[in-house]
Structures are given as structure tokens and as C-alpha cells.
């Protein structure tokens, strides 16, 4: 059954308005917080000030609008808890994104580079790098992202390998947390958590159920929930407004499409 000609540009305009208007005029819609986001929040709360965590930015620029708010909320929480953060990335684009975000938040919260946080930069072969971090961080990354000898950074005093790292968080839009679970978690026993794009949620829920992942927060919804737990309004909450109205617009389109379809079928 052929649909009556509805100019597809009208659909595009409808969707554009559904996304743009809530971003320009925020509504501040908030829902309840899911169990997995609450679990992630508790995980960060359970760490002691001064504990070292490793955050890996395993994502591309394309998905940053969705995954960036997740990363921001988690790092904000870690910095509020005075955790020391070591950043790295196994995807070239994630390298610049991670460095930008960490340096922005560190400046906002008065964290000093080398003591409270450090950025190791990009390593091309992630399996070897994940395994190498379990042997020696300094040997795996002799220099940091800014080309300084990693050995000279105070944050690495007493931190040799995964043994001294309390948690690894993979900020990912693909299957990288799986490799973290297999190579860093499985072989070296370091706890792994993941901040994901929403589409990856079903892939990684089994890992959370089996405790191979100790925390999971996903998509704009997860970011908005995390912001709610932190008591801040950020990109996640604002994005949730846009996502909500976009979902509603698509639902309306589906209903309208079906109504037209049934009317046409009755006539024929």
C-alpha cells in the first residue's frame, strides 16, 4: 500500500523543531533514577579521596553529544570526591575529547595536573595496551599526552599497575568495555565500569548481571539521572528534553502513518 505523498521535508522540519526547541527553551523534564545509574553513583561514593581511577575515552566524536554528558557527570562526581584521575584513550578521536573534558573540569575544580589528574593519551593497539597496563603503567606510557615523562608526575608515585587502580571506567560508544572486561578485568582483576551510548545498553547488561562490570550508566537518560543524583543540571538533563520531544514526534509520526495506512486500506 503506497502512502499518500507527504513531503519528507515536512518530517525533517518537524523533527528539527522537536529537537531544537527544547534545547533553546529547556523544560527540565526529569524521571526516576534507574538501578544501574544508582549503582554506579554508589560505586564512586564508595571510593576514598585520593584513590586513583583510570578513565578511558573509547569513543568517537560522532557520538560525543550523547556520551559526553555521561563522561562529564561521572568525572564531575569523581572530582567532587577528590579521586585522582588518570585518563587514556584507545581511539584516536577519543584522545582529544577526553583531554579537553578532563582539562576543562580540572580547571573548574582547581585540580592540578600531575597531582590530581594526568592524561596518558592514545595507544593504538588496545589489547596490548590493556594487558601492558597490568604489567607497568610507566613502561606502557613512558610519556604522557603532553610529552612529559610519566615517571615525573606525582600521581604515579606508588601507582605501578592495575594493582593500585581502584576502578577502570570505559567511556565507550562501541564494544571496548568488553575488551576491558576480558583483558584488564579477567586477567588482572581490576573492577571495570562503563559509560555507554544508549544503543549499547543491552550488549553490556549481561556483563553487569554477571558482575564483570561493576557499574553501568548509559545514554542521555543515564547522564540526566546521574546529574539528578549529583544535584546539577547539565547537558544530560537538557538533552533529555530534546530526546523526549523527539521520541514523541516519532510516535506521532508512527500513529499518523498507521492512520493514513488504514484509511487507504478501507477505501481500497
Amino acid at each position: 500500500m503506497k502512502l499518500p505523498a507527504l513531503d519528507r521535508r515536512a518530517l525533517y522540519v518537524l523533527l528539527f523543531l522537536a529537537v531544537a526547541l527544547p534545547l533553546l527553551f529547556p523544560i527540565g523534564l526529569v524521571g526516576s533514577v534507574s538501578k544501574s545509574t544508582r549503582q554506579f553513583h554508589r560505586l564512586i561514593e564508595s571510593l576514598q579521596p585520593g584513590d586513583v581511577i583510570l578513565i578511558s575515552f573509547d569513543c568517537e566524536a560522532a557520538s560525543w553529544a550523547e556520551i559526553g554528558p555521561v563522561a562529564r557527570a561521572v568525572i564531575l562526581h569523581a572530582m567532587k570526591r577528590d579521586l585522582r584521575i588518570v585518563g587514556t584513550s584507545f581511539l584516536s578521536e577519543g584522545t582529544a575529547l577526553g583531554y579537553r573534558l578532563l582539562s576543562e573540569l580540572a580547571t573548574e575544580h582547581g585540580k592540578s595536573y600531575g597531582e590530581d589528574w594526568a592524561y596518558l593519551g592514545f595507544r593504538p593497539q588496545y589489547v596490548a595496551a590493556m594487558l601492558g597496563l597490568g604489567e607497568s603503567i610507566i613502561r606502557e606510557y613512558p610519556k604522557d599526552y603532553l610529552e612529559q615523562p610519566a615517571e615525573s608526575l606525582p600521581i604515579f608515585a606508588g601507582v605501578q599497575s592495575y594493582r593500585q587502580i581502584k576502578l577502570v571506567i570505559s567511556i565507550a560508544d562501541d564494544s571496548m568495555p568488553q575488551y576491558w572486561v576480558e583483558y584488564a578485568g579477567g586477567r588482572h582483576g581490576v573492577p571495570i565500569a562503563a559509560g555507554l551510548s544508549a544503543v549499547m545498553l543491552t550488549t553490556f547488561t549481561p556483563y553487569l548481571d554477571s558482575h564483570q562490570l561493576v557499574g553501568l550508566v548509559s545514554g542521555l537518560k543515564g547522564a540526566a539521572e546521574y546529574e539528578q543524583l549529583l544535584g546539577v543540571t547539565g547537558a544530560g538533563t537538557r538533552g533529555m528534553d530534546a530526546q523526549s520531544s523527539a521520541h514523541l514526534a516519532i510516535i506521532v509520526l508512527v500513529v499518523v502513518g498507521n492512520a493514513i495506512y488504514f484509511r487507504g486500506r478501507r477505501k481500497s
Binding site: L11, Y12, A61, A62, S63, I250, V254, V256, N258, Y261
Partner: peptide, 27 residues
């Protein structure tokens, strides 16, 4: 340059999803 260009291309997915949902989801 790089990040906005990639995000622009990726965001086009939303428009494809909307038209696909309108045309494809039939009872």
C-alpha cells in the same frame, strides 16, 4: 572542524529514523 563535521553526519541518523518509522512501522 573534525568533531562538528562528524557529529553533523551522525545526527542525520535522527532524520532517517523518523522517516523510516513513518514509512516502515505498519500494523
Amino acid at each position: 572542524l573534525q568533531a562538528p563535521m562528524q557529529q553533523t553526519v551522525f545526527s542525520l541518523l535522527a532524520f532517517f529514523v523518523a522517516t523510516a518509522a513513518y514509512r516502515g512501522f505498519r500494523l
